[in-house]
Nucleic acid binder design. Structure first.
Length: 629
RNA sequence: GCCUCGGUAGCUCAGCCUGGCAGAGCGGCUGCCUCGUAAGCAGCAGGCCGCGGGAUCAAAGCCCGCCCGGGGCUCCA
């Protein structure tokens, strides 16, 4: 007997169709039970009455802990592959029901033998979700009990429960080393990341450094007037985010993806969608409109799959690549999990799907995108030293594709973490993700790509092959950079690390809100300085002027605290000689002499290939409001 | 969701334990200073002490509930 026990806020279920001849009579209407412990129950071959009684007694003990006295017995065959005969199962279920009632538990029961659909809302506390199995063994009942967080719905997810991960380090030559045998010397971050993945180890109790930074630099801030994890972005933050969005989008279009736009909300009861939804253990934002239940998307999958389902294409157009910058994707993360820019409830995620004919094509594409992602991260300002990669695959996939896996390891050029499963239980066969390790030794995934072998069928996506046959493609899911907000988080955390080393923190030049700050030494020079500013702005350089009446030293200090890459003081000497004194942050704040044209050429060369947006604030600092502090 | 810490001026925070006039620094405004590479000087304004309830002659402070944030538990497709 297998029982999945879920302490729920509510469950709504509806019998849809009789499955078997002995199915009970039931009305095809919705039933709703509030504040209830739902018992998804599968009766297995060999189960007996004693076991049924034992199971209810165990549940009863739990109810007292949970301070609830209401259960719903929900026959749920998918929990086991060793089911008993239906007649026996029904008998035992009825016994459980009777026993529960006898113990004074308010007992409800979903009908046996029906296909049912349900929606339920699980409580978040650690005891809310439990699975138990009872095995008949030499006349006595053995209870195996596990406390495990998981969504109840899919058999595949249940498998996660029993399926074990085998951890290895994949060397750059493609060899797999069991993790306990790997020498982590010189691979500090990989070690931290591995520990984070495997043990979920937490050490520090400290505010993540990027949070005060995102506020002080007027990038983003919490918005108490919204839901947690929905942030406000100040002009400078909006600029940074917008540039990242533009850059990633341009890279994906350059790669050959077709940019599309799809709705942010979907029908909760759409057949393909609800199925996929149940496969995805994230919590959704739900909303009601007229008579519809809607959910907010957590990725672009829905929209793109529905679009491709309706599209006609053949092997000649493949791999077929669609891209969308989802602003926003929503995930109703548990309140304790939302954190600064690391983990949000509303976030901007570039999402690119490639529809491939077969595994060979998928692998080829996967490799192309692997290179592309590394390049995208690098251009954003995150080098291979800043993140660690995990590759996750099944044992059989590895056996069949050793060379391919080795190629990936070679491309990356650093040992990476390999998670190996004996069998597949997610919808993908191969996945990689790049993970930033932050100042709290926490890891956050950035880029990722997966080979999805399930969803084409689920969404009835087909292409036509050479012989005119309709086939389901393989689907690659890729986020080239990961969430844009998370990129900002990584850049800020990285800058903080730099600062801890005693160096000057900064953002990449192309993302710096002010690239060049001009400081007229006194009022009389402001007009001349504006001429210089105009020349620079004309060359697509974000320049501003600190015309405030504060002392020179104070204005320099504030420019430094804003991480302005180039600070130039302009007075009589500069105007007469035409030579500027440029305080170069990258060169540790050293003041360098150069002509305006030289500076503009230097800056322009560093900005090559990056998108540009004009300054999102008034040219004169005296005209700017203060958003924070 | 649970545990835990916090929320006082725009920001950072002291005051709370032991109830009795609401505080500091930064920022803002005004004035002086017009400056040569990381904090010039002075004055003024600025408060629903997170929100709601309770006990008290009296609450920022004590008690209860809620909201928001940090950290932890749990989890991350």
């Amino acid at each position: 007997m297998r029982i999945l026990q879920l302490h729920s806020n509510y469950i709504v279920y509806k019998p849809v169709k009789k499955e078997i001849s002995i199915a009970e009579e039931a009305a095809k209407e919705e039933n709703r039970v509030e504040e209830v412990v739902v018992l998804f129950t599968a009766i297995e071959a060999g189960d007996n009455s004693a076991m049924a009684k034992q199971a209810i007694d165990d549940v009863h003990a739990f109810l007292q802990n949970l301070k609830v006295n209401r259960i719903l017995l929900y026959p749920f065959a998918h929990l086991s592959s060793n089911l008993s005969k239906p007649s026996e199962a029904l008998k035992l279920i009825k016994e459980m029901e009777a026993h529960a009632k006898q113990k004074g538990i308010e007992t409800y029961r979903a009908p046996f033998g029906w296909t049912k659909q349900f929606t339920l809302s699980i409580k978040g506390h650690p005891l809310a979700e439990q699975s138990r199995s009872y095995v008949a063994e030499a006349g006595k009942t053995k209870v195996q009990q596990e406390v495990k967080e998981e969504e109840p719905v899919s058999a595949a997810l249940k498998a996660e429960d029993t399926l074990k991960s085998y951890w290895h380090i994949l060397e750059t030559d493609g060899s797999l080393v069991p993790i306990e045998e790997f020498n982590f010397k010189g691979h500090t971050n990989l070690k931290k990341f591995s520990q984070y993945e495997i043990k979920k180890a937490r050490a520090v109790t400290q505010m993540p450094p990027h949070v005060p930074l995102m506020k002080r630099l007027e990038i983003a801030d919490y918005e108490p007037g919204s839901d947690p994890g929905n942030l406000r972005w100040y002009p400078k933050g909006r600029l940074i985010k917008s540039l990242l969005e533009q850059f990633v989008t341009a890279e994906m279009i350059g790669y050959g993806a077709m940019e599309v736009e799809t709705p942010v909300m979907y029908d909760f009861n759409h057949p393909s969608l609800s199925d996929y939804l149940n496969r995805f253990p994230a919590r959704q934002y739900l909303l009601q409109s007229e008579d519809k239940d809607l959910f907010l998307r957590f990725a672009a999958c829905f929209g793109q799959f529905l679009m491709v389902h309706d599209a006609q294409f053949s092997y000649k157009q493949m791999p077929l690549k669609l891209y969308e910058l989802t602003r926003y994707s929503f995930r109703r993360e548990k309140s304790g999990e939302v954190c600064g820019l690391r983990r949000l409830r509303a976030f901007t995620m570039p999402d690119c799907h490639a529809f491939c004919t077969d595994l060979e094509q998928a692998k080829q594409e996967f490799k192309t995108r692997f290179n592309l992602c590394i390049s995208v991260l690098g251009n954003i300002g995150l080098s291979k030293d800043d993140y660690e990669i995990a590759l996750r695959f099944t044992k059989d996939f590895y056996e069949e594709n050793k060379e391919f896996i080795a190629e990936l390891a070679e491309i990356y050029g650093k040992p990476l973490l390999a998670e190996v499963w004996k069998e597949r239980f997610f919808y993908f066969r191969l996945k990689w993700d790049a993970n930033f390790v932050d100042n709290q030794d926490k890891a956050a995934a950035l880029s990722t790509d997966q080979i999805d072998v399930e969803n084409a069928k689920r969404y009835d996506i087909t292409y036509v092959n050479e012989k005119g046959e309709k086939l389901n493609p393989l689907i690659l899911h890729c986020s080239p950079s990961g969430a844009i907000e998370r990129c900002v988080y990584a850049l800020l955390e990285k800058a903080y690390k730099t600062q801890q080393k005693g160096e000057l923190p900064m953002l990449p030049l192309w993302l710096s809100p002010t690239q060049v700050r001009l400081i007229p030494i006194s009022d009389g020079f402001t007009e001349k300085v504006e001429e210089i500013a105009k020349k620079m702005a004309a060359k697509c350089i974000r320049v501003d002027i600190d015309d405030r009446s504060a002392t020179l030293q104070k204005r320099i200090r504030e420019a430094e605290m804003e991480w302005v890459p180039y600070v130039i003081v302009v007075g009589q000497r500069e105007l007469e000689s035409g030579v500027l004194s440029v305080r170069d942050r990258e060169a540790h704040g050293k003041v360098q002499k150069m002509k305006l044209d030289e500076l503009m050429a230097t800056v322009a060369s560093k900005l090559e290939g990056k998108p540009f947006k004009t300054l999102p604030l008034p040219l004169y600092l005296s005209k700017r409001p203060q958003f924070y502090g």
